[in-house]
Structure formats: C-alpha cells, structure tokens
Design a binder for these strands. Structure first.
Lengths: 104, 104
DNA sequence: CGTTTCTACAACCATGTGGTTGTACGTTAC
DNA sequence: GTAACGTACAACCACATGGTTGTAGAAACG
C-alpha cells in the first residue's frame, strides 16, 4: 500500500498510468511525452512497476508498458473502506438523533 | 493530488485516518496509540491536515482531530476515472472482437 | 560488419521525509 | 500562583526521492 500510494503521489506518474491504461507505450515512447530525460521517465516507470500499477513486456528491443488495473483497484478499495467507515459513523449519529426524535 | 496520495502513502497516517473517521481524537490521544514521539504523530497529523484528510478543532487545551471524507472521495474519484478509462479500452477491444465474430 | 535505437543502471546532487530531542507557550488543575 | 498537561515549532539526523549525466549491453538496420 505504501508503494502504491507513493507511486500515485506524482503528477508525471499519474499521467503515465492514465496513458498506458488507454494504450500501450514503449518506455521511449513515454519519454517523448515529457520534458525530462529518458532516465527520469524510466525511473518513474520502475516505481509504477514496483507498485504493480504497470507491467512491462519485452518486444524486440522495446519494452512495452501496460497499465495494470488491479493496482488501481487495490487502492480504490481502501478508499472505499474509508468512506464506508465514515458513513457508518454518520448513520450511527443519525440513529441517535432518530431516537431523540422518537422521545420528543 | 500529490499531497493527498503522499499523505496516504504511510501506514501510520492511514491508520490515523481510519481512526478519526470512526471517532474524534485529540492529538495526544492519537500519540498514545503509536510507538513514537508525540512530535512525530503531530507531524503526521499536520501532513494529513494539509492534504485535507483531517481537520483540527481547538477544544480547551486540546486539539480535536476529525476525519474529512471529502479528501478521501477526491482520491477515490481519480481512481474511479482510471478504472473507467481501462474499462473503455476493454470495451473497445471487445467491440473489435465482436466485429470479427460478425464477419466470420 | 558498423551504426543506430532502446533500455538498464550507476553515480551524483538537491531536496523532501520520518523520526528524534529540546524549547516555548497557552490552558487546566490544585 | 505553581505545577502539570497539550500543543506547536525549530533544529538535527539518516535516508528516500526526483532529477541529471554517463556508460554499457542487446536488438534492429544499413
């Protein structure tokens, strides 16, 4: 989870994720999209790969990057849990208020 | 967004978020829960506050920390977008396969 | 073959992060 | 008033991060 959210905590990396979820890119193809060195983009891809947000597949001399929706879903599920926890508290509070109304 | 995901990229901070979504805690009340200094917990709370994941309210000499679900939702919505993007790609691929099936 | 392309990785630098301790200040309790 | 409590903040440290350049290997092209 740490690595997952850490990977998402960078605008360039979030953009890479959005791109490779739509279409396949080679690492150099991605590097062309950004105003930074190839090595920098390569590092970003490595961070995303360690977080299971993308996967790489060797194709000839290129490395094809694909988006992995599983990682996205793992993160989303945690946030869903948080929202669920929050709603349960709200419901509990409303229950208490409801009981008060019954009595008044 | 950077600050949001950055804030979530730490297990202690995620635990704090989960706690304060359920119930209110003072900063020192939170600090008791963890095996680290008060100042460290205080910093974590500050990070969460800057990310709009919690809010603080002064009550006497204590500072009450509450969970803010809006921040959670902002993050979740982005991940929802990613999943939607991914599903559209899958649908597109299935459409292409469907067309093939029509022709064969 | 040699050259170009794509990739990987190391070394380096500036800055940020997660932790510590220490100090200071407002609030509560005695 | 004084002591204890809760908080804030600065200074410091070790380490991670995001960027750079440089070097080197594997695959494609002439």
């Amino acid at each position: 989870m740490d690595r997952l959210f850490q990977a998402l905590a960078d605008a360039t990396r979030r953009d890479i994720v959005a791109r490779v979820l739509v279409a396949e890119y080679s690492v150099s193809g991605l590097a062309e999209q950004y105003d930074m060195s190839f090595a920098a983009v390569q590092k970003h891809v490595a961070v995303l790969e360690r977080a299971s947000l993308v996967s790489k597949e060797k194709r000839g001399r290129e490395q094809i990057v694909r988006g992995e929706v599983d990682g996205v879903q793992r993160a989303r599920r945690l946030l869903d849990d948080y929202e669920r926890i929050w709603r349960q508290r709200v419901d509990r509070i409303e229950d208490i208020l409801g009981e008060d109304e019954d009595r008044t």
